[in-house]
């Protein structure tokens, strides 16, 4: 524990700045303070309106409506947070978890969640079997949607370019008026670098998702179990010359953890079976690259697992490196169930 309480210091690692008791008591007190401030302010606002009615009170825009919204939010957030944190004091972790599990057993909650979960903490994977394949039974969905990286790249590029453009205009005008601001002018250098990097990222994402054709992966069984074999088919479309093209079955452990105030994610490949790895592949537009393979889940393999901070994922991964294109990876999820146990 730190000797001196330092409010504005960034926490690193798993150490605590103060005692656990301080946190347990402090959290509900903060919520209570927010609630009380909201209630007093809301009461003051409403009583003031009753005592001296102001016809402009109900006009839309900044002012009383905004204050009303703010105070009501404070009452709801403060009250809800206070009740929740107080309810958690003194209850064991098992009791809280059991209460959540029992709440999920209520009929109306069951309808809102996934019905008939025979295998807890294994992803249902209904979106894997809802798309029929052309060669085999199921066409697997890709794990990464291209829309998010493209949207993030576009937003980042637009924002950084706009900032650089506005500051550049101001800097040029200052220079033209013989009142140069060198701090502003020099700050344009790192800002321009950020903007250039955003442009590079956006172009790269656009090239990856428009230049390289779609990858289609199909399987004839799903879900899989340890020891089971399964036929797999791969089709790569688009007109490409690939330096290398590999297809593999992998199992990855994934862990999410807090480090101070940061949330970090780490994954580790614990199984990797290369189904094929070819070099100098040419794909014509009218003739997609097609390969068939057979995968076998090892007898001792761990099943797929998903909880709040930990996971075990099975995937088929396509890794390609085309000439004059950046390398690309495309992942397709598989769900592996535990072996069937015959009851005695």
């Amino acid at each position: 524990m730190a000797r001196i309480f330092r409010l504005w210091e960034k926490k690193r690692g798993g150490r605590q700045t103060t005692s656990l008791w301080f946190g347990t008591v402090g959290e509900p007190l903060i919520y209570a303070a927010i609630f009380l401030f909201g209630v007093f302010s809301l009461a003051a606002l409403i009583t003031a309106q009753f005592r001296t009615p102001d016809p402009t009170f109900f006009q839309l825009g900044l002012g009383n409506w905004l204050l009303l919204l703010l105070y009501v939010s404070m009452v709801l957030l403060g009250g809800g947070g206070f009740l929740f944190t107080v309810a958690e004091i003194g209850a064991s972790a098992e009791r809280r978890s059991a209460l959540v599990a029992r709440a999920n057993d209520f009929e109306f909650v069951q309808h809102a969640t996934v019905p008939g979960r025979t295998h807890p903490n294994i992803p249902v994977g209904s979106n894997i079997t809802n798309s029929p394949g052309t060669k085999l039974r199921f066409r697997l969905p890709s794990m990464q949607s291209p829309a998010w990286p493209l949207a993030a790249g576009a937003a980042s590029f637009l924002l950084s370019s706009a900032v650089v453009a506005v500051l550049a205009v101001v800097a040029i005008r200052n220079h033209a008026e013989s009142e140069p601001s060198w701090v502003l002018t020099l700050s344009l250098i790192p800002l321009s670098s950020v903007s250039a990097w955003s442009a590079y990222f956006l172009i790269r994402q656009m090239m990856l998702h428009t230049g390289i054709g779609p990858t289609i992966v199909e399987v004839d069984e799903h879900p899989l179990r340890p020891g089971q074999t399964c036929k797999v088919s791969l089709s790569q479309l688009g007109r490409l010359r690939l330096k290398s093209f590999a297809f593999c079955l992998t199992c990855e452990e994934e862990a999410t953890y807090h480090q101070g105030t940061d949330i970090r994610n780490e994954s580790l490949r614990v199984f990797n079976q290369i189904l094929f790895d070819e070099h100098d592949v040419t794909i014509e537009r009218a003739q997609p690259f097609e390969r068939a393979a057979e995968i076998r889940i090892p007898e001792s393999a761990m099943h797929s697992f998903l909880s709040s901070h930990n996971a075990v994922h099975w995937k088929l991964i396509v890794h390609g490196h085309a000439e004059s294109w950046p390398p690309f990876d495309r992942s397709f999820p598989l769900i592996v169930y535990p072996p069937v146990v015959e009851q005695e």
Binding site: S92, A93, E94, R95, S97, A98, A101, P120, N121, E253, E254, A255, T256, Y257, H258, E266, S307, S308, H309, N310
Partner: peptide
């Protein structure tokens, strides 16, 4: 006295827990 049958995770990630049986 609380009696539970549960699983929990260990390792790099934050701890997760699933209570299969609980009696107080």
């Amino acid at each position: 006295v609380e009696l539970s049958v549960l699983w929990y995770t260990e390792g790099k990630g934050d701890e997760d827990m699933g209570v299969h049986y609980f009696e107080r």
